[in-house]
Structure formats: structure tokens, C-alpha cells
């Protein structure tokens, strides 16, 4: 039995905001199924009593004084923008036609 169907891959692509083609879906569905088969091996040793590790270095919150420091200017922040208007990022409309 396969781990993941073509429809599930299409759903993942939608969640991940990737407008994949029909042809890509065919390829990715097979490959992801194969990869999931291989990585599922982690289940063999992941017993209930083992704590998870999210990070190699034990992390605590890092605090600093809330002081104004030099940062990017508005012009620098917008310098890589695909589109800008009146000192702001210009974005496409948020709502679709049907909305």
C-alpha cells in the first residue's frame, strides 16, 4: 500500500503554495512515496520513553535591553521589493474574483 496518494500530494502543494503541474504531480507522488517508505524507519527505535530533541544546543530565551539601534532604512528595506509604491510594498489584490 502506498503512503501517499496523488491527491494528497496535490493537497500538500496547495498548502505549500506551489502551483505544480499535472506532470510534476505524477513524478512527485512516486518519489515522495519512496522517500516516506525510507524515512518511516525512524519509527523502529522511537520508543515512548525517549524524549525528543528539537535543537542540539539547549536553548534559553535570550534577552536584551529594548533600545533603538541602527537598522535598515525604508529605502533599503524596499530595495529588493518586486513592486513598491509610496514607500510601501505593493502587493496583488488579496481577494479572488469570486470573493
Amino acid at each position: 500500500m502506498s503512503n501517499i496518494s496523488r491527491d494528497e500530494v496535490a493537497h500538500l502543494a496547495k498548502l505549500a503554495r506551489l502551483a505544480v503541474t499535472e506532470k510534476e504531480l505524477d513524478v512527485f507522488a512516486g518519489q515522495l512515496d519512496q522517500i516516506l517508505d525510507a524515512v518511516a524507519k525512524v519509527g523502529e527505535v522511537a520508543a515512548d520513553d525517549i524524549p525528543p530533541t528539537s535543537h542540539a544546543v539547549p536553548l534559553t530565551n535570550v534577552f536584551r535591553a529594548d533600545e533603538i539601534r541602527p537598522s535598515l532604512s525604508q529605502e533599503q528595506a524596499l530595495s529588493g521589493a518586486p513592486a513598491a509604491e509610496e514607500g510601501r510594498f505593493r502587493v496583488p489584490r488579496i481577494l479572488g474574483e469570486e470573493q
Binding site: 524515512v39 525512524v42 527505535v45 520508543a47 524524549p51 530533541t53
Partner: peptide, 15 residues
């Protein structure tokens, strides 16, 4: 739990 959670446990075992 089956995937990401288990992988994090393996990380503990490797450490």
C-alpha cells in the same frame, strides 16, 4: 508523531 516526532527522538538517541 509518526514522522517529525519520531525523528526528534532519533536525534536524542544519536546524541
Amino acid at each position: 508523531d509518526a514522522y517529525y516526532g519520531s525523528a526528534q527522538k532519533v536525534r536524542t538517541l544519536i546524541t
